[in-house]
Design a protein around this nucleic acid. Structure first.
Ligand code: FES
Ligand code: FES
Lengths: 135, 135
DNA sequence: CAAAAATACGATTATTTTTATCCGAATTTA
DNA sequence: TAAATTCGGATAAAAATAATCGTATTTTTG
């Protein structure tokens, strides 16, 4: 179905929100409320982005999140990787093999990989900042 | 996860198989056996492709499927549509709205649609014949 | 005509993936 | 020490995908 997962969608919105409010640390709760996103889910997601180095977190009261890098320097590809969402269109894309029957003698693997690269390029060339209307 | 569904994957393989054996009518059973694909599932899928005009079927003994058009004239986009697989990366892509929170004032819709178009173009410009190694 | 080999169609089940929640722990501020 | 918050693991709920079942219909052929 070639769909961006909610994780990715929420993360884009959250990153843009944090970018707009970069003067302070933003709590997961505040972001969730302002964007009307499920708090627990968003919370998990932000923690992941932190661990992957896209966000910096501060624990405790007055804690929250800030950007670790500008959203103009975060590509969609990077975001997907951080969220463990591979942009693979077939399972064998990262070497796992048997994405389709007859793996060994697969007739379509190489051309499928070509498709894959075209798609990767799109995500590689789009940053979170690019995904805003009001530039 | 941006993954081609099994339906699409199997369909590509099946169409290529039928193209290679275009002199005769190919039964679902034969195709499934030769490609090691689940018969019932493939069968359903071929029926769908027939109804959508990509295949021609013949009922009864000696029945089976033939191509209704050359695989060089079937794009991946067309195939996905035929299989009711939209290549939408977000729900609002075909007007359904509220794909993400704050739909009305969605900051990212238009740029997301741009991404969408880039992806559509890839699928629009790739035919089933293009997805073969041995041209 | 009857049997066999197919497709056609609808319903259902099973599996996997995605999305969401819960809970207790650790950390920091005041 | 209490409150606000991130952290981390486990689990649950929902949705989408993949697969199967059963029966009907069509066509060929002996
Ligand atoms: S084995 Fe991956 S495309 Fe065939
Ligand atoms: S409403 Fe679809 S991208 Fe925001």
């Amino acid at each position: 179905m070639i769909k961006l997962s909610k994780k990715v969608e929420y993360a884009i919105l959250a990153l843009q929100y944090i970018a707009e409010n970069s003067s302070k640390t933003n709590t997961a709760k505040e972001i969730a409320e302002n964007l009307t996103l499920p708090y627990e889910f968003l919370s998990k997601l932000l923690q992941t982005l932190m661990k992957k180095g896209l966000l910096v977190s501060q624990l405790g009261v007055k804690g929250g999140y800030k950007l670790a890098k500008q959203i103009s320097e975060i590509t969609v590809e990077e975001l997907m990787n951080a969220l463990d969402e591979r942009s693979n269109i077939v399972d064998c894309a990262d070497g796992d093999s048997n994405c389709c029957s007859r793996t060994e003698i697969c007739d379509i693997r190489s051309p499928i990989m070509n498709l894959q690269e075209q798609i990767n390029n799109i995500f590689k060339n789009t940053t979170i900042a690019n995904l805003k209307n009001n530039l």
